[in-house]
Design a binder for these strands. Structure first.
Length: 475
RNA sequence: GCCCCCUUCGUCUAAUGGUCAGGACGUCAGGUUUUCAACCUGAAAACAGGGGUUCGAUCCCCCUAGGGGGCGCCA
């Protein structure tokens, strides 16, 4: 009973659920599921200025979309401030914390001086042993944790191994602000303890926090949870993942047409592995996941691999389900509303019928929908100006002249036809590079490529178009 | 600046004190498909550098370089 694993995912609602957070959530979820434990969700909203309702919604939404559920109701950290304050007062009463009257300016000067002297730019302990009688009037004190000065704090991390911090490197951090609100490191310790968290799995940007939190745990006489600090995810260039890399919220990946299963599979392999296994079901992950197999080095985010996986899951998905997902997705796209209107019930039926040919050509849902455009395009087609001009001048006639009626073309003529079309397209500078290939598909009547309808229409091949439509509808 | 962490093909990674250092994505070349995609086959592609320890180091130790994280009355 007391051995039951309880993990938590603890995002701060200051933005969307980004890709690193998503992986952290996934790891926590997997570990809890793998060990038959629970994953709790805690919203760390103690920074009132930066926390927003919208961000909370985005995070919950992102988790749900990814298929990561949590046990019980989310815990809102801000709501527990009173409890945190209590603990701070308790530490104060026990002499394990003290009041600090230093002003912001003093602290700033302190940091600069320390930096000049080559020390860590932390708090110098001015009020650690100073008599409160000397406190300046009218200043509301903050409460600082009286951190040990001697010895070392050791973290036995399940991923990073044994990490040792010299206590002199860790300064006395504020646990209760002068306005009486608790700070992160205190809240985390109290909440992790009260929530019965057994395993803390988070990004390794929290490694030093683990040392500070360990000190607080000890001062309180509480057991520390097991720590597992997972390396961060970097952008394709190796630098920290940022907006410019597409370090977007998971909802952005949804909008780009990625599937939750693909993202889960991609994410789980970033920093964790199980032999040579690449494609694995969620059941496989749960069966195989363990902390010991998490690597210690940062991983770069690679869209190419994500796309490959997404294509795999797309092809494996039942047609009807893809249509359902497309319907849900279309409104998220730019110009989504008019697009949806244009597709209409008939369009969705056509898409589902054409799905076998569609889904094996697309790597994302968005690409698939794009490829399906010929099924519901507004006729006549709206060409861009340049293309229109080329066609008007000589192209339409010339090209059309090259093509005999489809009915009269024998299969072995197709290749020659293709070459002719391609040459024309090149010479005209018209973007008809794609003309030739779909044309051949039309001639052979098999595996219709997306776009052939548009091509024939542009060329004014009404009879061919009609024939092709019949073929498709016959399928 | 100080503290902590990391370093195997371009990318994600596996393995081992003695291997042709394996897989996947990507790339390239074939095949299949009279298109494309998918699929199949094949190829190129890595142990950061320098010292040790050892009969032997990619693997163990040290140093260097490079990368990352942290150093708030943010989380």
């Amino acid at each position: 009973m007391s051995e039951k694993v309880i993990t938590r995912f603890a995002p701060s609602p200051t933005g969307y659920l980004h890709i690193g957070g998503a992986r952290t959530a996934l790891f926590n979820w997997l570990y809890a599921r793998a060990k038959g434990g629970k994953m709790l969700l805690r919203i760390e909203d103690t920074d009132r200025a930066r926390s927003t309702e919208g961000a909370i919604l985005a995070i919950l939404d992102g988790l749900r979309w990814l298929g990561l559920d949590w046990d019980g109701e989310p815990v809102y950290q801000f709501a527990r401030a009173e409890r945190h304050r209590e603990i701070a007062e308790q530490l104060l009463a026990q002499g394990k914390a003290y009041r600090c009257y230093a002003s912001a300016e003093e602290l700033q000067a302190m940091r600069e001086k320390a930096r000049e002297e080559g020390r860590a730019p932390g708090y110098d302990g001015t009020w650690r042993d100073r008599d409160e009688a000397e406190a300046p009037a009218g200043i509301k004190p903050a409460i600082r944790f009286r951190a040990p000065r001697e010895g070392e704090t050791v973290i036995e991390d399940r991923v990073q191994g044994r990490v040792v911090f010299a206590n002199k490197e860790l300064d006395d951090l504020v646990i209760l602000r002068s306005d009486g609100t608790p700070t992160y490191n205190l809240s985390v310790v109290v909440d992790d303890h009260d929530m019965g968290i057994t395993h803390v799995i988070r990004g390794d940007d929290h490694l030093t926090n683990a040392a500070r939190q360990t000190q607080i745990f000890k001062a309180l006489g509480w057991d520390t949870p097991v720590y597992a600090h997972v390396p961060l995810i970097h952008g394709p260039d190796g630098a920290k993942l940022s907006k410019r890399h597409g370090a977007l919220g998971v909802e952005a990946y949804r909008a780009m047409g990625y599937l939750p299963a693909a993202l889960r599979n991609y994410l789980v392999r970033l920093g964790w592995s199980h032999g040579d296994d690449e494609i694995m079901s969620t059941e496989d992950m749960v069966r195989w996941f363990d902390l010991d197999a998490i690597g210690r080095s940062a991983a770069r985010f690679d869209f190419a691999k994500l796309e490959n996986l997404n294509g795999h899951y797309l092809r494996a998905m039942p047609d009807a389900e893809i249509v359902e997902r497309l319907k849900a997705l279309v409104l998220e796209l730019p110009e989504g509303a008019p697009l949806e209107k244009r597709i209409g019930p008939e369009g969705w039926r056509k898409i589902e019928r054409a799905m076998p040919g569609l889904k094996e050509r697309a790597t994302t849902l968005v690409e698939l929908l794009d490829n399906a455009a010929y099924l519901f395009a507004t006729r006549p087609l709206d060409l861009d100006e340049g293309a229109q001009r080329v066609l008007d001048q000589a192209g339409r006639q010339t090209l059309a002249a090259l093509l005999p009626p489809l009915e009269t073309v024998e299969p072995w003529e197709a290749a020659g036809l293709e070459a002719a079309v391609r040459n024309f397209a090149d010479a005209a500078g018209f973007k008809l590079g794609k003309v030739a290939q779909p044309l051949r598909a039309a001639l052979t009547g098999r595996s219709i490529s997306p776009g052939i309808f548009d091509v024939l229409e542009v060329l004014g091949r009404e009879e061919s178009l009609a024939r092709l439509r019949d073929q498709v509808h016959a399928v």
